[in-house]
Simulated scan of single mutants.
Amino acid sequence: MATVGTRDLKQEPLAVVCSALETGEAVEVTTHGHPTGVALVPAVARPQRWVRGEDMARITPMSADATRRRREDLADVEQAPHIGVGGLCRVAPEGTAVTGAR
């Protein structure tokens, strides 16, 4: 288990939390090198690289009609003008500008 001192936790809390989330490993908090009995434990397990065969077997293929509808929906989205950054995109009517927060 990784350890972090209370001083480091106070000065760089985001770095400690991100480290715990990235590694999926609990981080024990210490004071002057001694355990405090407190640990930061990620609530979400790390993403798995591989999908188990039994999980794959439960996936049912999409019907041809569903596949066609999905492709049409994606084509409509790709053609729409998007304004924004990352996951905060908004679709604007053509010829208009979008300003301000969502």
Rank of each mutant, 00 (worst) to 15 (best):
E28K: 03
V17H: 01
C18T: 06
V29G: 06
E25I: 05
P13A: 00
P47T: 02
L40F: 13
V29I: 14
E12C: 00
T3V: 00
T67A: 13
Q79A: 15
R46A: 14
R52G: 12
G37P: 07
V17P: 01
L21R: 11
R7P: 00
E72L: 12
P61Y: 02
V16E: 02
R52I: 00
M62N: 05
H34N: 11
E25T: 10
I83W: 11
M56W: 07
E25P: 05
G95I: 02
A57P: 05
D8W: 04
E94C: 01
I59Q: 13
R49H: 15
S63A: 03
D55L: 10
M1A: 06
Q79I: 07
G24A: 01
R46D: 00
R49N: 11
A66T: 12
R49E: 09
E72I: 05
G33K: 03
E94P: 11
V17W: 04
D76F: 10
R46G: 08
V85Q: 08
V38L: 15
E22M: 11
R58H: 07
R90V: 13
T99C: 10
S63H: 05
A97W: 06
T23N: 09
V38K: 08
P47V: 09
V41D: 04
Q11E: 15
S63V: 00
V27E: 01
D8K: 08
V16K: 03
